[in-house]
Design a protein around this nucleic acid. Structure first.
Length: 277
DNA sequence: CCCCAGTCCTGCGGGC
DNA sequence: TGCCCGCAGGACTGGG
């Protein structure tokens, strides 16, 4: 499940294949399944970028941003199982789109569950979206002050708040548990009960966990879905301390076992000893 | 406005 | 052995 580190790894991987290249065609693959959500609808979307030159490839939170010379932005959200591949895809069955490029290999968007989305914006239109506040600050640049102000405004559990993309954008279910373990914070702690000192620690842990995960090219879980653009596994799953470790001894205190609870229909993992209320 | 349950989707694994 | 059901969760929708 691509979160910020996995999407960052994808972006770094496809940049050499896409930046500075002419997009001959953005081709929809023959796929019998329900098509990926596309705005504007295909083929209008493809028509607007056919023959356009790709200038930059970047990332905001869990979104991939491909900027064209025409000042349009193609924004890809991989969501649960979407992958960008510069290699042969794992199965043709779930191929969704092909970037047909001039003088180089194709790049593919592959998505098993098909929950991903593709949206084409005009530059100013995307800026309006960013200004609307629907997306909070990117997790790698969010400041202590931004976090503390938003935490103060809600008594929702901190784990739930970390997943709220309006508060901080880029953290997903996996990294939220890992981050709270590092700061020894109970996941059910009301956000407005976090002190300035605890919030400072949390902000540092967010940076620490996400940048370390980027260095390890993200996490490939047991379902094996996430791969980098060359179809290789990430390795941060080997550094996981609590995520999917229910029943195992806590790697910190080595006394208690990791618990799993459900918060807003999502699993949370924590150590009841290290992360006491 | 705030918050949460439901929804989309497919593949896997447990239980019978 | 094979079928069925529940579960995985990112982000959006609707309703209390």
């Amino acid at each position: 499940m691509p979160e910020l580190p996995e999407v960052e790894t994808m972006v770094r991987g496809i940049r050499p294949f896409l930046a500075g290249k002419k997009l001959l065609q953005f081709k929809k693959c023959r796929c019998k399944r329900r098509p990926i959500q596309c705005k504007p609808a295909y083929p209008q979307l493809a028509r607007r970028i056919k023959g356009d030159n790709i200038q930059t490839v970047s990332r905001i939170a869990k979104r991939i941003i491909i900027e064209f010379e025409s000042e349009q932005l193609l924004v890809i959200e991989p969501r649960m199982t979407g992958l960008i591949l510069a290699d042969d895809p794992p199965s043709k069955e779930h191929l969704r789109f092909e970037f047909c490029l001039e003088g180089t290999n194709s790049v593919f968007f592959w998505d098993r569950r098909g929950l991903g989305t593709v949206t084409l914006y005009y530059k100013e239109e995307f800026q309006q979206f960013l200004d609307s506040g629907k997306l909070g600050p990117d997790a790698l640049v969010a400041t202590f002050q931004q976090l503390f102000e938003k935490f103060q405004k809600t008594k929702r559990a901190i784990k739930v708040v970390l997943l709220d993309q309006k508060v901080i954008a880029g953290v997903g279910n996996l990294y939220a548990s890992e981050i709270l373990f590092l700061t020894k914070t109970h996941p059910e702690t009301p956000a407005n009960q976090l002190s300035k000192r605890q919030t400072t620690k949390l902000q540092q842990a967010i940076l620490n966990v996400l940048t370390t995960a980027i260095k390890h090219e993200g996490s490939t879980l047991s379902d094996g879905t996430y791969r980098n653009v060359l179809n290789q596994n990430g390795s941060y799953q080997n550094q996981h301390r609590v995520y999917q470790k229910e029943g195992q001894l806590c790697p910190n205190c080595r006394k208690e076992r990791i618990l799993r609870i459900v918060q807003t229909q999502r699993s949370t993992f924590y150590c009841p000893n290290c992360q006491s209320k």
